[in-house]
């Protein structure tokens, strides 16, 4: 029996030490290697200055044409909207940008049903894994129950092997540039339609990530604006949710502005390229007219 336990002990030692070493190597290369997607770009962007940061989901990424906004307002903006992004992802981005010595004057947060999502999106969480040496990001992930306070090293890389597995690690090590152009922050949606992919919740629920964003903004003296993004009129519970938002936020409402312009839609929840241009123009002009609401929760 002694021989078997010794044998097992050697194997376990090999496994555990490999996991420790791999965790360090992977984390280091993801934190210091070449940037290969927009999420990494946002988490690693350093020493820059922006007038406006747009935070939100695909309704920010594909609705706010940053170049058009900049042309109209003469301000430097960053569109940090990402497909399937939640408020927790936005918090991670906001926190990382500030931690990495980026200067921001204003933060525009697009409000939608993602307000009710209580965790990081799967994609963003995977990108955060190498940064879990940061106490703030780690404690937030623990607080929302996405990770446990007791973890076996490297298991998070193993569980997220598609976005941060061996392939991505290897490409980082050999400095292989991404074929995607993620520097183009606005991602247009091409086509026309009003297809529904689900329904809105009837009411808004509180979100601790939002509280943390507002706290950070206050700490760094950043003004926060809230707005909603256009949805087609058949979006179920849209108005109920909007009403619920009004009870909690002062925001500029745009969710029904294109109810008569259905050719602006890619699907019921997203504008197409044409709609995005019209919406950005409206957003920028409203901004110039000082119509946006400056608000805290």
């Amino acid at each position: 029996m002694k021989k078997v336990f010794s044998y097992l002990a050697i194997i376990l030692t090999l496994v555990i030490s490999s996991m420790f070493i791999l965790n360090e190597i992977y984390s280091y290369s993801f934190r210091n290697g070449i940037v290969r997607n927009k999420r990494q770009e946002l988490l690693l962007h350093k020493n820059d200055k922006f007038d406006i940061l747009f935070l939100g989901s695909s309704r920010t990424e594909s609705h706010v044409v940053d170049s058009v906004f900049e042309n109209i307002t003469n301000l430097k903006v960053i569109n940090a909207g990402m497909e399937r992004s939640t408020l927790h992802d936005s918090y991670a981005v906001f926190y990382s940008l500030l931690k990495n010595n980026n200067k921001l004057s204003e933060c525009w947060i697009q409000l939608d049903y993602t307000h009710n999502i209580t965790k990081h999106s799967a994609n963003m969480f995977a990108e955060i894994v190498p940064f879990l040496n940061d106490e703030t990001l780690e404690s937030h992930a623990i607080e929302i129950g996405q990770i446990s306070s007791v973890r076996v090293p490297f298991t998070l890389f193993m569980k997220n092997d598609k976005p941060i597995g061996f392939r991505e690690f290897f490409l980082k090590v050999i400095n292989k540039k991404s074929e995607q152009d993620f520097s183009l922050q606005f991602k247009p949606l091409l086509g026309c339609g009003t297809g529904l992919k689900g329904k809105w919740p009837k009411s808004m629920e509180s979100n601790i990530a939002m509280n943390k964003i507002l706290k950070l903004a206050k700490e760094y003296g950043i003004r926060v604006h809230f707005y909603t993004s256009p949805n087609c009129p058949k979006a179920e519970n849209r108005d109920d949710f909007g009403f619920s938002l009004k009870e909690n936020y002062r925001f500029k409402n745009y969710y029904d502005i294109f109810d008569d312009s259905l050719d602006y839609f890619y699907d019921c929840g997203h504008l197409n390229n044409k709609g995005a241009l019209a919406f950005t123009k409206l957003l920028a002009e409203d901004f110039l007219r000082n119509k946006t609401c400056f608000s805290t929760q």
Binding site: L14, V15, S18, N160, F166
Partner: peptide, 20 residues
């Protein structure tokens, strides 16, 4: 033997599919 075991463990950790 131990080199082969070590290599297989490394491959299990880095190339194993655990998400899907």
């Amino acid at each position: 033997k131990w080199l082969k075991i070590g290599t297989v463990i490394l491959m299990l950790l880095t190339l194993g599919v655990y998400s899907n």
